[in-house]
Structure formats: C-alpha cells, structure tokens
Design a binder for these strands. Sequence first.
DNA 1: CGACTTTGACCGGCGC
DNA 2: GCGCCGGTCAAAGTCG
Length: 299
Amino acid sequence: MEDKEGVDPASEFTSDSSWALAGGPDSVSDSVNYFFDRESNILSEFNWNLQPDHAEQIDRFDELERADTRPYLAGSFSGSHSCVAAAAAACGSGSGSGTASSPAGGSADVSTLIPSVSSSSGEDPSEKHTGSGGKPPEIPSKARKKGQKRIRQPRFAFMTKSEVEHLEDGYRWRKYGQKAVKNSPFPRSYYRCTNSKCTVKKRVERSSEDPTIVITTYEGQHCHHSVGFPRGGLISHEAAFAGRFTPSVSQFYYPHGEIPASIIRSQQVPIEIVESRTLPQTTNEGLLGDIVPPGIRNR
DNA sequence: CGACTTTGACCGGCGC
DNA sequence: GCGCCGGTCAAAGTCG
C-alpha cells in the first residue's frame, strides 16, 4: 500500500482541486474555509455534524468532554495557531485513485499521506488495498476473514513535524504491529485503542522524504471517552485530531473558534501541519504549528 | 502477574 | 497466475 499510497491517491488529492484551490501560502484562511465546506459535506455523510452551523453542537460535545478534553486542548492550543484539521473518511467516495500520478511536487509529503487515506477510502466496496486479510478490526478472530468484507472505517491522516513518533492524544494505544515500509527507511507502526470495545486504530510512520515529519493516520471512531491526558497533561495536536475523529465522544475545543480545516473529496482529510512540534511528554511545549494545505508547502 | 512491545508468519488484495 | 506488499495475528519477550 505504501506504494500506492505514495503515488496515486496523492495525485488524486493533489491533482484534486481541493488542495490546488488552497491557493498560495497566504491564503490559508481561505483554504480553511474552502476545506471546511468540503469537510462539512463529507463529515455530514458520517453524521459527524461538523458544519459551521453545528458549532454549538461542537461546543456541546466539548462540554461533555470538558473535564479532560477542554483543558487539554486549550492548553495545547493556546498560544498556537490552533488548528487543524482534517479528516478523512475512508468510505465513500473515493474514486479511484487518480491515476494521475501526482506530480505534486510541492506536496510530496501530502501525497504520501493522502494516498493511504484515499486509497482506503475508495475501497469500501471492493476493499482494495488493505490487505489485511479483510479481518474486521472488531473481530479478532479470523472467522470473519473470509466471506465478509471488512468495512472501512473513516480515516484521517495528518502530518506533524515532530521528534517523537507517538504523540499523546488522550487515548491509550497498544501497538500490534510494525512493518517496514517500502521505499522508506522508517517502519510503520500499527496501534489500536486499548479499550476493548473501541475499534479505533492508528498508524504512525515517518516521512521518508523528511524524517522530521510524522504521518499519523487514524481509522475509526472512539466509542468511549479519552482516558485523559496522561503524562503531565501534555497534549499534542494529535489530540485534536483524535477528537475530531471521534466527534461523538471527544470533540475538541477551538480556542479561537477556528474551523477545522481541510477535507478532501474522498472523505479524507489530509492535513499538513507545518512546524508543529511535539515535545517529549515530559515537556509542556507541544505546540501546533500553522496548518498548511497540502500543496502549499514547499519543501 | 498483567499489560504492553516485538517480531516473524500469515492472509488477501492489487498490479503486472 | 504470480509476486509484492500492506495489514493483522499471535507467540515470545519485556517491563513495571
């Protein structure tokens, strides 16, 4: 999948007007709005209700999570640019991955990221790449392996400039696998939420092009509240993503009312966070950097 | 001792 | 049809 990820989908996105429309680096806010629109549509398909007019709803969620989430987020975002996001869902749309190989020169990172998401998205029906044996995450047993296609969970991925791979997001994860990634010197790690009832998974890998960039992909939605913010309450932007990912449970808080940013046509929301730093859990400096729509950032 | 990580093997989808 | 590769499993090892 890596290959595919690194290639096609990317092209799809990059070629996709969505990112292109992002405009130049200066048009971030515009792009955010643009993406938001798309996101709204996409998310609505998942009943995530993140449309602007649902801001209140978000707040409500936030209230529910206030105890742990808000403080956490507030702290993490305060002073930084907030925001973020993206999200993606895998289901749906997807169209095939654009064959257009993505020239996306400038968005190499993005391409890498998106592909994974997008390709998965398109798979709903046919479930392409995930070869994972089509085993439903929920059902560990191999029983469902055959005859039953795995239902793709919504996904979303984002890139983070970080020195540590595993960013705190308020949830506990158990690593269940690690694989070497083709064309990349860095392995990809697979995690699943430790909550037995929760099927959320996430993949973490470093960009082969820029080792300082960590690509995290979430899949699924948490069916429980976060466990709080461990380790000194350190928070990372990842938390925000995680929260976005699980609207029904942990919405995040946007200190400045920013709207989550991007979304992509295939229900994937790739996001690129530039200069964001995630420090070791012992520190308190995790900050979100500016979010730049894929394609904008030049490396 | 339980929870978690590591790691090799296996499975299935996809491209050629 | 074959081989490659991503994703997952599960046994063994590690840690607190």
